[in-house]
Design a protein around this nucleic acid. Structure first.
Length: 317
DNA sequence: ATGCAGTCCTGTAAGC
DNA sequence: TGCTTACAGGACTGCA
């Protein structure tokens, strides 16, 4: 579900809540996720402190540190993907994080001093446990997301190499982009969703940036002119930046790190608007399925290949 | 190598 | 009301 702007919003929300906090306990539902969690990671991360919260394409990256035995620093990374329905939120007053909640699969207990152990508010025993300062909670209805522990920066790089995460729109050179498009006959909509060529664009923003570029989703990659390719790339960046300003798009399940909905759904031009008039020209927005994903476009603003009655290309371009 | 369809999972809404 | 079907923001696998 979440695309780059949603993941960026989660990271921005979580950063001030997590930096400097220690992980004292980790709870896992035991359910299998797309990225399978391993029990040993829970104990491995205990006693570490959050020192950085960042994002790469649709991936969240948390960096944690702790003092190592010989005076040095030990570092590790927690990498996460929200899949379609993942919700990663800071909960200030979740005092029973180890009790099962609906579709909650991971809970990281946070404290502002080093120290492990479950919250025991009634316990006034000898050993003083730093008070619980909220939890980082992962909820995921469809379990298409998940988290993984990565030991070093080097391992982190190979993780992104393995997953073939391409450059984000603002890091992609127009020449490289145009060159890649010239080499493919795939529909441009499918190319935008391919995270290896350009990363971070998902189904909603692919439709939106095609509309704002005036390009039909069923155009073939190699049919785009250099000018069209450049415009599409710059619009992809612009559409994402605007969506970040609006804290992401909430259609169904998405919430930011503070458990709040986004606002960008109010500004969508085509996504989810099949049958409604185009805000620019008044023509009816159409919906077709491209590569198994629903695609929304304005047939007047987005001139494309000759279409048959089903809305698909009849001949070549 | 390329591109497409099927698959993972659960919830919701629409249609009969 | 209840059952069935289609669809949902993602990404991997396997097949042609």
């Amino acid at each position: 579900m979440p695309e780059l702007p949603e993941v960026e919003t989660v990271a921005r929300d979580l950063k001030p809540r997590l930096l400097g906090k220690w992980v004292s306990e980790v709870w896992w539902s035991g359910k299998k996720m797309r990225l399978p969690w391993e029990t040993k990671w829970g104990s491995a991360i205990r006693g570490y402190r959050f020192v950085e919260v960042s994002r790469r394409a649709k991936w969240l990256v948390f960096t944690l540190e702790k003092n190592a035995s010989k005076g040095g620093l030990a570092q590790l990374h927690l990498v996460g993907h929200l899949g379609m329905t993942g919700q990663l939120t800071f909960q200030a007053d979740d005092y029973a994080p180890n009790l099962p909640q609906d579709h909650v699969h991971l809970v990281f207990q946070l404290r502002d001093q080093r120290g492990a152990g479950r919250a025991k508010p009634e316990n006034s025993g000898a050993k003083k446990i730093p008070s619980l300062k909220g939890v980082l909670r992962y909820r995921d209805i469809r379990r298409f997301g998940g988290f993984q522990l990565v030991r070093s920066g080097k391992e982190l790089e190979s993780f992104f190499r393995e997953h073939k995460v391409g450059p984000e729109p603002w890091d992609c050179s127009p020449d490289h982009w145009f060159g890649a498009l010239q080499k493919t006959k795939r529909f441009i909509k499918a190319v935008l969703l391919d995270q290896t060529l350009i990363s971070g664009v998902g189904n909603i923003y692919a439709d939106e940036c095609l509309h704002s570029s005036g390009i039909h989703p069923l155009r073939r990659g190699d049919s785009l002119t250099r000018g069209e390719a450049g415009k599409l790339l710059s619009q992809a960046a612009a559409v994402m930046r605007a969506a970040i300003q609006n804290r992401g798009t909430t259609i169904r399940n998405y919430v930011g790190g503070e458990n709040l909905n986004g606002e960008n759904q109010q500004y969508l031009q085509v996504y989810g608007r099949a049958g409604e008039p185009c805000f620019r020209c008044g023509d009816e927005i159409l919906r077709v399925v491209v590569g198994g994903r629903s695609s929304h476009f304005c047939p007047k603003c987005q001139k494309g290949p000759e279409l048959n009655n089903n809305g698909f290309p009849g001949g070549s371009n």
